[in-house]
Design a binder for these strands. Structure first.
Lengths: 221, 221
DNA sequence: CTGGCTCCTCAGCGTCCTCTCATCTGGCCC
DNA sequence: GGGCCAGATGAGAGGACGCTGAGGAGCCAG
């Protein structure tokens, strides 16, 4: 198990506790170290603090994922940081735990993750002939690359992580925009239109469906 | 669904969000109101803030329970209040969520609670060859997808959650339309007709039965 | 500073949904 | 069989909802 934590005190505590539970523990104190160690050593699970001196936890997680490592990641977030949870899950974390936490809760979640095993996810998201690589941020449809802005890409990525599901405006705003939905804005509508113009129209398709009164859905098949 | 929350801003937010998810929402701003409304209106689930101007959430929950109401209760607690969790569960809550929370987390837990319901229910509703997935809002009959509007879907879902039962117009209006039945409207009749045209007629069936003088029934088997 | 780009707001417009109303149909009781 | 009443149906008004084009604010590079 790889523990990524910059506070010496905390990491010692975790190491001791986890070793007592029978885990073999390596510690990385920075994001760079963590990425390197995840690459170099066989790791069954990763315990990842969001706050790190160099990169933040999301970035670390994304890079580990894009290196093809799908070991379960349990992310430790600051206590009120709701966007963190969301960001963490989108970056490829498998679970999160807010500080402060009880050690028994930590071990329970670790056991759950290990039971589940590595999350079998491909690096590149694919829905029909549409593909999106979160690592390189390259999007293609029918083999042709599509240029998207940051926001458009984030939105499409969220759609592709939930293919076929109806996603409400509120859900989309919370995940893609990171703020609470207060109504009165049609920003989701606008960005769906942008996406349609880049991802659908040039190919004569309409994979982004409107579900009246509910939200939008990326059609699959 | 009954939302008990004294902050106007919060309750508006919740109402709007939940309605967008397809729930019919009533709001109570105090403990007294909540107890009264839980008694007076048919409620499938209760979202209950712990901090209220008059009684606290635990007391409200206890009283609702002792009135014989066993609708699932999801309690909203202050952030670190571990004792709250315990108290809440003791008082008869089914689940708790600490503020602040992501709206998607809220809806996930609500779905889980409703799924549990009085008896174990699967995520996808099935009655014979008719299936309805509340998450994706996809309805199929005999493997063929059926397009429904928001209202039609809500009505069909209610029928499918009570297969074989005779449902009165009053019951249907209260659950699907979220307002008190005042007679004089045949809106249920109209929507049953719409459903029949989409769900029955194309398949040469008549699963939505009229029970003269009583209401309607979704025939099973 | 200027131009280009991205992000977002806003208002107008068209479409589809929702619901009402008046009329029609068919079952049931006499 | 006739009358009555519950329910079915068709037409259509009104409005909610989503789409779209225009444009302003912020940002960055040149």
């Amino acid at each position: 198990m790889l523990v990524v934590e910059d506070s010496q005190k905390m990491s010692n505590l975790l190491r001791r506790g986890l070793e007592e539970e029978g885990y073999a523990v390596d510690v990385a104190a920075s994001g760079e170290d963590a990425i390197w160690m995840a690459e170099e050593y066989p790791v069954d699970a990763i315990l990842l603090d969001v706050m790190l001196p160099d990169l933040d936890g999301f970035e670390v997680c994304r890079q580990i994922r894009s290196a093809g490592n799908w070991a379960p990641v349990l992310m430790l977030t600051a206590r009120d940081a709701v966007p963190d949870r969301v960001g963490g899950l989108d970056a490829g974390a498998d679970d999160y735990l807010t500080k402060p936490f009880a050690f028994t809760e930590l071990t329970a979640r670790i056991r759950a993750l290990l039971r589940r095993g590595p999350s079998e996810r491909p690096t590149v998201l694919r829905v029909d002939d549409l593909s999106l690589d979160p690592a390189t941020r390259i999007v293609t449809r029918a083999g042709q690359t599509v240029d998207l802005t940051a926001r458009e890409l984030a939105l499409l990525e969220y759609f592709m992580r939930h293919p076929g599901e109806v996603l409400s405006r509120m859900q989309l705003i919370e995940h893609v925009w990171d703020f609470a939905y207060e109504g009165g804005s049609n920003i989701v509508d606008v960005y769906v239109k942008y996406l349609r113009e880049k991802v659908d129209r040039p190919f004569g398709l309409s994979s982004l469906e409107t579900v009246r009164g509910a939200g939008y859905r990326l059609r699959v098949g």
